[in-house]
Design a protein around this nucleic acid. Sequence first.
DNA 1: TAACTAGGTCTGAAAATAAGACTCAAGAAA
DNA 2: TTTCTTGAGTCTTATTTTCAGACCTAGTTA
Lengths: 152, 152
Amino acid sequence: MKYEELIEQPCSITRPMTVLGDRWTFLIVKQSFAGVRRFEDFLTSLGISRGLLSERLDRLVEHGILDREPYKDERRTRMEYRLTTKGRDLYPILIAIRDWGDTYMAPDGPPVHYRHAGCGGEAHVHITCDKCGEELSAHDVAPEPGTGAVRA
Amino acid sequence: MKYEELIEQPCSITRPMTVLGDRWTFLIVKQSFAGVRRFEDFLTSLGISRGLLSERLDRLVEHGILDREPYKDERRTRMEYRLTTKGRDLYPILIAIRDWGDTYMAPDGPPVHYRHAGCGGEAHVHITCDKCGEELSAHDVAPEPGTGAVRA
DNA sequence: TAACTAGGTCTGAAAATAAGACTCAAGAAA
DNA sequence: TTTCTTGAGTCTTATTTTCAGACCTAGTTA
């Protein structure tokens, strides 16, 4: 199967993966959250090659995750890539990955704390039931076909 | 930069991506949560090629995300790949991706509902502060170096 | 005018992926 | 006993992606 064909699968995990599921895309988004906006800054902070960065930024813009806008520096016009609302909504995925990374891949402790500004507590993700409010784990959840499923 | 070198970066988002950030790995994990355990079942449900599936399963086992065990069918011995605790802890990432996928890539509505067994409500992720309990968005969070950061 | 900078494009070599043929062992069928 | 089928892979070849670095272009500064 061609990887691109996966986007047609009726699965809300598979479909985002066709957009985000490669080596670099998610790291670019991560840098965006960290305030990186310019081509050269993505380039040097990530160590990605120019060609790939160019292609990936284009794709993120196409998918409406980043906006590409020229803006006036003091003197020159430069390009900026900024997260859209759709892009900012990826934040829980980022924090979920960070929680797992801190737990299993950070032998020297968390490299970065994500603190509640002002309060000083740390941000973590939780799965909760939107009806009873209880905190859930994988055991408590049962998948069930929805309206977007393909009828056989 | 070689992609593999990224695993040394002091970042709990980058490091998991070196394990999970390719076309197929996360989809294999997704299938594991859906109850798939056998080689042939991953193969047909995902449409991945044999060689890649073999290599990816090995890698997930190496990283302690799946366990590979022979088990007795009625008559024969077969292989099973099952999530470890480390693997099950990926669930919030999965649900976070699904939330985003349902919001932005499911024009016909959610293909699958992830329901709280018994209660019937739906599972969603939230970012909360572990000190004050408030629900947070990207705006409310400020990154700050931790013990695992490299000193410059 | 020359050099520099941001933001790219182009190119060739190396690596990863796709598709399918082949292997091998165990158990079932004839 | 020989053959067939099945699960779980390995191997091979062609195609795609990725890497690394050279090159390009327009405005800026010296």
